[in-house]
Structure formats: structure tokens, C-alpha cells
Design a protein around this nucleic acid. Structure first.
Lengths: 136, 136
DNA sequence: ATATTTGCAAACGTTTTGCATAGTG
DNA sequence: CACTATGCAAAACGTTTGCAAATAT
């Protein structure tokens, strides 16, 4: 949290109640959170920001690479930038399951960095298919 | 195109002017196309469907796995399902560059299929970062 | 003949904006 | 004090829907 605090300050942001609660929520869940879920979790903490405020916070945090935004099946999801994993997305029930696969892309990223002169900050890897329940 | 035709018929769809032109557009471009780009390309072919018609076509084709839909930085992109590649997405200029990496995920997919009892249909792999121009 | 596809207009839901006020550093 | 963050209401935006007419098989 300390490093986050300084990152935010460096970005010209202020550590407000909303931002703090938002980061706590994202830190406590080790998975992708939708806006609706974020709002629910904030409510549990008795933090009920206006929608525009929440949206503006999310834009700020994404812009400064403090959190990542991914869109899966038309819904936006957020997670802390350093909490990175991959996902299995069920095309039947839309459930999203985490899957851990460490270092699998390191070589490819090095290759891309050299070959394409592209400075990689992050990546997104999602597998789409059908979970056990939804297989007919 | 022939196989696509039969796939569409099997799915209960009809080969209309719009659907045909849409598939031609997607087949001619070997990259992700946004809705706006699709509309422009259709116009060149003098096919100008109503927005709702186009959206309905896209929903149909995605639903039947004839095309893939990916959302990158908040914009929806489409491509023929068998035309699969990965992308470098520039966080500066939003440009999307294709990158070919064959078979890199085969082993992982086999592992996931067994370990998670998950039937993989497709996957999405995107690298986010800064292209040569946007590196300061 | 039957079912799908189409365009239109209205409805919808989400996100964005302007502005005045409150709060942070 | 200067600048960011907030809530509110309005506006903007893309998408979806219902329906009657047109079209494909």
C-alpha cells in the first residue's frame, strides 16, 4: 500500500477516501472485478461514491498503470496492475476462472521487444471455452 | 467461403447481401476490424445496412463462432474465427500491430483441458506497451 | 409458405461533461 | 492557497428493442 500511495502522489493524485477504499477492495480480491462488484464491495465498507466519481477514479488509476482494465464478453473488469493472472472464460455461463501460468511468455516478450522495438508493459491472456458444467 | 456458407446455413442463418459483404470484408483484412471500420469498408462495396442490422449480424456470427470479438481499450474488434493472431497494442497511439507466434500455447492448452476440465474453443493474447514512435 | 432479415423510431443503460462546492496537500 | 476530488443533473453515446414490411429458402 505504501508504494501505491507514493505512486499516486507522483501521478498528481490525492489519497482520498474513495481512492483508498477502492484500492483496498482491489487488493483484497485476487481476481478481476467488474464495476458492479466494485460498487457492492465499496458499499460494505460504507463508501458510496457517485458513479461519475468512481468512473473518474478508475480512469485515473488505469491511466497511471496502477490498475489494469480488461473487457471480457462486453463487461469491463479491473485488477491491481501487479496482480496479474490469466483466465478461463466460459462461453456458456460467463463464469471466469483464474489460472496461473508463470513465466510462460517471458521468452516471447523478449523476442517481441527486440524484433518489433516494442516496449511491453503488460499482457492479457484469456482462454475461451466451456467449463465442465456447460459441456453438453 | 463455401464452408462459411454451409456453416451459416447449419446455424439457421440466411446468406443475405449484408452477411455476404460483411464476411468478404472480414476475409479481405487480415486483422482486427472495429465496427466503424467495418461500416466504412461496407460503404466501399455500396452496402449500407442500418446500424441495428449490422449489430444483429455481428451478434449472430459471434454466437455461432464464425467470427471472434475482442475488446481492446474499450473498442470492439472483429475477425474471422480461423484468422487468429496476437497483437501489440500501443498505449500511446492506440495502434494495433499483428504478431505471429504459432503453437506457443498448445502445451498450456492441453494442460488446462486436463487440469481444469475446460474445453478451450479460442484464446486471446494481447501485449500492451509502447511502440517505437511512442517511446520517450 | 415459413422463417429470417431489414429499416425505422423509440427506448434503454451506461458513460461523460460542466459546474459549483468540498476537501487535500 | 492552489489544485484535485466530489456530487448532481444534463447531455451524449452506443446499443437494443418492437414492429411491420421485405426477402431468402
Amino acid at each position: 500500500m505504501h508504494t501505491l500511495h507514493s505512486t499516486i502522489k507522483k501521478s498528481g493524485g490525492r489519497l482520498t477516501k474513495t481512492k483508498q477504499a477502492l484500492l483496498e477492495v482491489l487488493a483484497s480480491q485476487h481476481c478481476l472485478l467488474s464495476k458492479a462488484t466494485i460498487i457492492k464491495q465499496l458499499q460494505r465498507k460504507h463508501v458510496t461514491p457517485n458513479r461519475s466519481t468512481l468512473y473518474r477514479e478508475l480512469v485515473f488509476l488505469v491511466k497511471h498503470h496502477i490498475i489494469n482494465q480488461s473487457t471480457i464478453n462486453g463487461t469491463d473488469y479491473f485488477e491491481l496492475a501487479h496482480q496479474h493472472h490469466h483466465h478461463l472464460v466460459c462461453l456458456g455461463c460467463n463464469n471466469i476462472e483464474r489460472v496461473d501460468m508463470d513465466n510462460h511468455l517471458t521468452k516471447q516478450e523478449q523476442y517481441i521487444t527486440k524484433q518489433h522495438q516494442f516496449n511491453i508493459i503488460n499482457h492479457l491472456l484469456e482462454f475461451y471455452g466451456y467449463c465442465q458444467k456447460c459441456q453438453n
